[in-house]
Amino acid sequence: MNERGRNENTKDKGDETEAKIIRELISCGYSVSVPFEDNDKYDIIMDDGGELYRIQRKMRWTNKENTMQFNTHSQTTKAGKYHEDTYHGEVNAFLVRYPENEKIYWIGIDDATEQKMELRFDAELNHPSINWAEEYEFSGEIP
């Protein structure tokens, strides 16, 4: 339950994530639009005054220490059949909220994997395949 005594579900958490991301983008000076329907691959349109960016917002989960993960594919059921689709060609970036530190991470679609992506905060070794969370922290500037 949240502080208001309501049970939170994934829709509530997603709405909270979207609201916090929109607030952050607006506070950084961007114009933000939200699609009228829920059927688009993107959740937010961000305008920097010159370009429009299609953003898919994500909430993370933690599956191991010092790491966050998020899906980089969509899961739907159409006509009784399960489908998984990537966002490549459909969005420009993922904006991921990490509630534990209240930071937002910008992952460009070209950096994203096709299923799940893992960002690490710390590791015992520095391996080239590690995606370091600090490198994706959204500072207000589009990478």
Rank of each mutant, 00 (worst) to 15 (best):
K81Y: 06
Q56Y: 00
D48K: 12
G49F: 04
N71P: 00
Y98S: 03
V34W: 01
S74F: 04
N101C: 12
T72L: 08
N92R: 05
R57D: 10
A123L: 09
W106F: 14
Y105N: 11
W61F: 05
Y105A: 09
D43F: 01
P128F: 03
Q56R: 13
P35V: 08
S27H: 08
A112H: 05
G80A: 09
C28D: 14
C28F: 13
N126Y: 04
I45N: 01
I26N: 07
N66H: 14
D111K: 15
E65N: 09
E65R: 12
G49T: 08
I104W: 07
G108C: 11
H73G: 05
N92M: 01
K103F: 04
Y105C: 13
V34C: 07
K78M: 12
T62E: 13
E118D: 09
D48C: 09
D111W: 10
I104E: 05
L119P: 05
E84A: 12
F121R: 02
V91N: 03
G50Q: 10
Q115N: 12
D122I: 00
F94A: 05
F70G: 02
D110K: 13
Q75E: 14
L95H: 06
L125K: 07
S27I: 06
D40A: 04
T77K: 15
E114Q: 08
R97C: 07
M68H: 00
G108Y: 06
D43T: 14
E102C: 13
E37F: 07
N63K: 15
Y87Q: 04
D110Q: 13
T67M: 11
R97I: 05
D111Q: 15
L125G: 01
A93G: 10
T62V: 11
A79F: 11
E37I: 05
W106R: 09
N39H: 08
T77E: 15
A93H: 09
R57P: 00
A123P: 02
H73P: 00
E102V: 05
V91G: 03
S31Q: 09
E124N: 10
V32E: 08
Y87R: 06
V32A: 12
V96W: 06
H127A: 02
K103Q: 15
S129Q: 02
L95Y: 12
P35T: 06
N63S: 13
Y42H: 15
D40W: 01
I130P: 02
S129I: 04
R57I: 13
F94G: 03
E114H: 08
I55P: 03
W61Q: 03
K103A: 08
E84I: 09
E100Q: 11
